[in-house]
Structures are given as structure tokens and as C-alpha cells.
Nucleic acid binder design. Structure first.
Length: 367
DNA sequence: AAGCTCGCCAACCGCCCCGTC
DNA sequence: TGACGGGGCGGTTGGCGAGCT
């Protein structure tokens, strides 16, 4: 296979990204969303390969990234997931909103691995070192149920019996003895389809006390908010970042509503915030597709257009089927309604809402 | 203060998978 | 059906800063 074709081109910059490059990439994605990565460098005026742009966006520029130290709960969850999934960082990252696979991988290699070693636990098998050396092959392939069963017999995964919400971290914790306790059904989740329920995500995020916005992007956010007041966002739908509340990063307990309003750029954000906060306070999160539709319908009570891309927070979770793009529109021709081009898609929330209420739409949860 | 070591982490590399032609 | 290109993923590297001598 060899080197990726985009990297073979001449005069491509490598190494650390400059603030200027970041700004160019950020502005490009902010305007046009995530599309064909190979065309991004050219369109954004960057001397980088598409892969490099993609990585920079995913690992650093994405507004839904959480920065800072890993919490104890996150650490426990990583340990738990690693025992089940092994070095499948991307799958592990799915369960840790706001964290990238690269970040988790680095955290594992720099901290957790050593921590386990100090505790006398083999980081690759999660068994006591002595036992591991004697009997256990290094990396087990847990993809098939037989090997999982075999593994769990040697080191049982405790399945919680009570009706617990999945991703309750306190119930999916690493106990330091090589065993992992997960909520009922969680193990199945890992090994069946890659589908992921965002309700679980919200549940989890309630508990991990996120650290807030990606600080790297605050200046840009502020800039956009200065340029475009909330009422202008309907006319500037391409600024999906600002109109898209970051569900992963709100400190639902700590942040004042007034503060939120000041920081958010749209009514939609406030509506979403209220909804999530409500869920947070009474833990009555919708658990069915129908309920999810209802909740969403309440959330999207205005006519704001959500312009967001599949890599970003909410639409990465909700894939609305049954919504067809009627026409192809160039990105620079976008207006405040539903648009679709080959590479970029945005949906008017009211349409989504109507479809959901009408029962025509199916929400599938997707990684 | 200078040199050295070490750890962290951003970014790259190489491979694989999948879709398209 | 095979070649090709794009995207995604895990492993690895190297730059840089902090701490130590």
C-alpha cells in the first residue's frame, strides 16, 4: 500500500501546526463543515495533506473536545473498557465524550500502564503479573463471544443485576484486582453493533464533571459571537459551531443559566441546555426512540437551522433517516434552509422535529 | 547557569477497510 | 474483479518543557 497518496505531494508542511494554520482550518470547517478531507487543504489554503487536517481537527480543533486532566471516573472507565476492548482506542473514545482516541491512548501509555504495573497488574491482560506471565497470552482477541466468555471465566466480568443505567461509571468500575464490573448488557453492547445510545452519553456526562469548553477555541467562539449576534444566526447558518451547544462540556450543576445564555449563541442552545439540565435533575432521560423524539421535539422549538457535520457532537449521535436532500447546493450558496451538496449537509431542525413527531423518522444512534 | 534525563503528547507512519470506477 | 483513492485506526516518533544534577 505504501504511503498515503496525499502525503507524497510536494511542498506539504509537516510538524506542529501554527496558530495561523489552525485558524485557517477552523474557519474553513466553521464555514463549510467537514467534507472531503483531501480537498480541505486546497480550499482552506493550507500546505498540508488532508489526513493531517483531519487529525488536527479531530484531535485539537473540534469544539466538543474536553481538555484537562482525566477524572477518576474517566480513568476507571478507560480501565474497564480496556479490559474488554483491548487497544481499540477509537471504540474506547466513543464512550468518553470529549476525549479523542489519541488522547486516551497517550493517557494509557503515559499513566495508566505504569499505574497498573506498579499495582502488579499486567496492563495488557489486566491480570496479576505473576499469573499473567504463567498462563495468559498477551493480547486476547475479544471480538468473538467464545473468547470473551473464556476470558470472563478466568477474570469474570461482574454483571450488575439491578436495573441500572448503562454507563453509570460507578457501576462500571475497575476494582484493581483484574476484574471489571459493568452494568448488565454493557458487555453485549461492546460486542454487538457499533451503535451507541446518546442517552447513555448524557447520563455519563452528567457524572464526569466536565471541564468546560475547549479552551483553544474560546477566542474563535468569542470572535464569532461578536460578529454574529444570536438573531443573526438564522441568516448565518454555516456557523454551526456557535449554534451548536456542546452537550459534552457543560457543567450542568455548576453553570448558571444566565451565564449559559450569555455564552450561547442561539435560543436553541438554551433550549437544549434546559432540556439536558432537566434530565440531569430528575434522571428521567428518555429511553426509547419515541421518547427521544419527543424530547428532541421539545428541544427544537424554534426555527433555527442547525448546520453541523457528522463529526460533531449532536449529529454524530443522531442520524435521521428518511430525510432526503432534494438538491445540490454549493456551500457558498447556502441559506437558512435545508441544504445538501455532495460533501456537506445541514438540516433544518424543524423538519427533523416534524418527522420525529410524525413518527416517520427513525433515530439510529451511531458512533 | 548549563547540560542532561525523562515524560508527555501532538503528529506522523503504515496498514486496513470500504466505496467507486 | 482488480485498481485506486479516501478515511480511519493503532503504533510509533520526536519535539519540547520540567525537573534534576
Amino acid at each position: 500500500m505504501g504511503r498515503h497518496s496525499c502525503c507524497t505531494k510536494q511542498k506539504l508542511r509537516k510538524g506542529l501546526w501554527s496558530p495561523d494554520e489552525d485558524e485557517k482550518l477552523f474557519n474553513h470547517i466553521a464555514r463549510f463543515g467537514v467534507g472531503c478531507w483531501s480537498s480541505v487543504p486546497k480550499l482552506a489554503g493550507l500546505q498540508r495533506c488532508g489526513k493531517s487536517c483531519r487529525l488536527r481537527w479531530i484531535n485539537y480543533l473540534r469544539p466538543d473536545l474536553k481538555r484537562g486532566m482525566f477524572s477518576q471516573q474517566e480513568e476507571d472507565l478507560i480501565l474497564s473498557l480496556h479490559q474488554v476492548l483491548g487497544n481499540r482506542w477509537a471504540q474506547i473514545a466513543v464512550q468518553l465524550p470529549g476525549r479523542t482516541d489519541n488522547e486516551i491512548k497517550n493517557f494509557w501509555n503515559s499513566c495508566l500502564k505504569k499505574k497498573l504495573m506498579k499495582q502488579g497488574i499486567d496492563p495488557s491482560t489486566h491480570k496479576p503479573l505473576a499469573e499473567s506471565e504463567i498462563s495468559t497470552p498477551n493480547e486476547k482477541d475479544y471480538t468473538d463471544e467464545a473468547s470473551l466468555l473464556q476470558s470472563s471465566q478466568a477474570h469474570p466480568i461482574e454483571i450488575a443485576t439491578e436495573t441500572e443505567k448503562p454507563f453509570n461509571v460507578s457501576k462500571a468500575c475497575y476494582n484493581g484486582s483484574g476484574n471489571v464490573r459493568v452494568a448488565s448488557g454493557l458487555a453485549d453492547t461492546f460486542h454487538s453493533t457499533p451503535n451507541f445510545n446518546p442517552v447513555f452519553l448524557l447520563e455519563f456526562q452528567e457524572r464526569i464533571n466536565p471541564n468546560g469548553y475547549n479552551p483553544n477555541l474560546m477566542p474563535q467562539f468569542q470572535q464569532y459571537q461578536t460578529l454574529y449576534e444570536p438573531e443573526q444566526f438564522e441568516a448565518k447558518p454555516n456557523f454551526g459551531f456557535s449554534s451548536m451547544p456542546d452537550l459534552t462540556n457543560y457543567d450542568l450543576e455548576g453553570i448558571a443559566e444566565a451565564e449559559f445564555s450569555a455564552n450561547s449563541a442561539s435560543t436553541l442552545s438554551s433550549l437544549l441546555y434546559n432540556e439536558v439540565k432537566e434530565c440531569s435533575s430528575n434522571s428521567s432521560i428518555a429511553t426509547s426512540t419515541a421518547n427521544a423524539g419527543f424530547e428532541l421535539d421539545k428541544m427544537v422549538g424554534n426555527n433555527s437551522t442547525l448546520s453541523w457535520n457528522p463529526d460533531n457532537s449532536l449529529e454524530s449521535l443522531f442520524q435521521f433517516s428518511g430525510i432526503k436532500c432534494e438538491e445540490s447546493v454549493e456551500p457558498n450558496e447556502w441559506q437558512g434552509q435545508a441544504h445538501c451538496s455532495d460533501d456537506y449537509i445541514s438540516y433544518p431542525l424543524t423538519s427533523v422535529s416534524e418527522d420525529l413527531v410524525g413518527g416517520n423518522a427513525e433515530i439510529s444512534y451511531q458512533i
